[in-house]
Write a protein that binds this DNA or RNA. Sequence first.
DNA 1: GATCCCTTTCGGTCGACACTGAAACTATCG
DNA 2: CGATAGTTTCAGTGTCGACCGAAAGGGATC
Lengths: 154, 154
Amino acid sequence: MSVGRETRLSAWIERFAAHFAEEGIPLIGGRILGYLLVCQPVERTAAELSQELEASSGSISTNLKYLVNVGLVTKRTRRGRQAAEYRINEKAWTDFIQRKFDAIASVQTLTDDGMRLLSGDPERSMRLRTVDKLYGWLSEELPALWERRPAAPK
Amino acid sequence: MSVGRETRLSAWIERFAAHFAEEGIPLIGGRILGYLLVCQPVERTAAELSQELEASSGSISTNLKYLVNVGLVTKRTRRGRQAAEYRINEKAWTDFIQRKFDAIASVQTLTDDGMRLLSGDPERSMRLRTVDKLYGWLSEELPALWERRPAAPK
DNA sequence: GATCCCTTTCGGTCGACACTGAAACTATCG
DNA sequence: CGATAGTTTCAGTGTCGACCGAAAGGGATC
């Protein structure tokens, strides 16, 4: 007997969360992301997420705040509804990746400063130069690559 | 009265270590990296690093092991010398970055699996599709970009 | 204004991990 | 085969952060 689609989806959500946990996103935050990517209907309240993901209301609140803050999740309040509704903001995923690229490219300022401190000592700055060159190249190419990214569909 | 070059270099090392601490590398590991990038002479023993960075021998040992393991530092032993000498392996920095790229591209397999689970339900898979497309593009472009990376000198 | 429902805040617990320093281990030299 | 110099292992400590659940906070309806 085969397992149902929903069961497999929740296993998928767990894998999804595990991946982002390695990148420093709290497990529950990752679960929220994965869940909001595939749930039907697309909008959920904090209470529903708490029940569905078996996490405390506090954890859900903290993580939603974080996710809304970085833009990956959107909060919507409606008149006549006490509960706010949350949904994935899949278009913000590009910003999420861009921040990663920026983090990589930002090392270049660091290596650059180091090179300045060692100026006039070519012998000693050889090692740093190799690293600086690499990051210099990256901080040229990554933004250029990013320009060519495909437009998100409406 | 201006501060000496060595003083400014140790401040730089601290900034360097702080950056990589945000990426999950232990502070002492980052200090070792920064220090080995600019020290003169280029090779140091564990004992010297311990003294210079004011870290316990245990921490130095653990972190050197880790850094040697990921290839960023090279260990050299010599006959007639009881102390091993460590030096930066600046050429391995490319692998270090490539691992980051691989981590990003690997999400594509995840989103892909998710898409398969939702196959036959285009309505529901819309959100995931947007993310999947983005990672699909990245896992095409990042390796291609990497091919064009400048060769390390010597 | 009172009640209800949902969300956020907050104190507390738990586990993970960086770090330390001493003890065990290894290799070199006399 | 000591003696010595250096490195690694390991148990213990402290810190940090994720998570929980209860209490406080804030709207909405009556």
